[in-house]
């Protein structure tokens, strides 16, 4: 595996703007990713959006990743991955933050450590993307205007894209009762 070239100008900008904060950085095939602590996430995002030298006006996507038993060492189990674009420079930049669970991850009990600040106040379009991450991974977003599950129904007993959720066997259709007009 090649060593990453960390020459993206935004790395330096962020480092200079937040002295004393801990950042990690990585790069692969020209795509640069900044890894921030969950506590610093919102502050860094405000900087990336509003600073004229960074100017990331567009949030393209938010995704969750579960690194349970991943072959490479990762700073945490769950990652939330933000995909930002600066229109003026046609520049795509990725920001990532890692959180660790404190409860067993096979249910839907709210986990106090699986919480990340919402970026809905910066990019309104993050609302549904964060709802999807919450639905699929159970990562909650602080200050989200309307954090409900989006694809699965509210009572669904798991967050299905977690790695400890099997492809088959749980949540199959025949385990639910049929509701029709006669069931009143």
């Amino acid at each position: 595996m090649t060593t990453p070239t960390l020459d993206h100008p935004t790395f330096k900008l962020v480092k200079d703007a937040f002295p004393g904060k801990k950042f990690l950085a990585t790069e692969f095939r020209g795509q640069s990713t900044l890894i921030v602590e969950p506590a610093d996430l919102h502050e860094v995002m405000v900087f990336l959006k509003s600073d004229p030298r960074a100017d990331y006006c567009f949030l393209s996507d938010v995704s969750g990743v579960d690194y349970l038993n991943y072959p490479a060492e990762m700073p945490g189990r769950f990652a939330v991955h933000y995909n930002l674009i600066c229109f003026n420079r046609d520049d795509r930049f990725f920001v990532k933050t890692f959180v660790n669970p404190s409860l067993p991850t096979d249910g839907i009990v709210p986990d106090p450590t699986l919480v990340v600040d919402s970026v809905c106040d910066l990019w309104a379009g993050a609302e549904w993307m964060e709802r999807e991450v919450f639905d699929m991974f159970g990562i909650r977003f602080r200050n989200h205007p309307d954090l409900r599950r989006i694809l699965m129904w509210e009572e669904y007993p798991a967050h299905p894209l977690r790695k400890d959720y099997p492809l088959r066997g749980r949540g199959e259709r025949d385990q639910y009762k049929v509701v029709d007009r006669t069931s009143g």
């Binding site: 006006c57 949030l59 393209s60 996507d61 990019w123 309104a124 379009g125 993050a126 993307m129």
Partner: peptide
Amino acid sequence: DAIAWSTT
């Protein structure tokens, strides 16, 4: 709004 709502 189109930019804020990530429309493409």
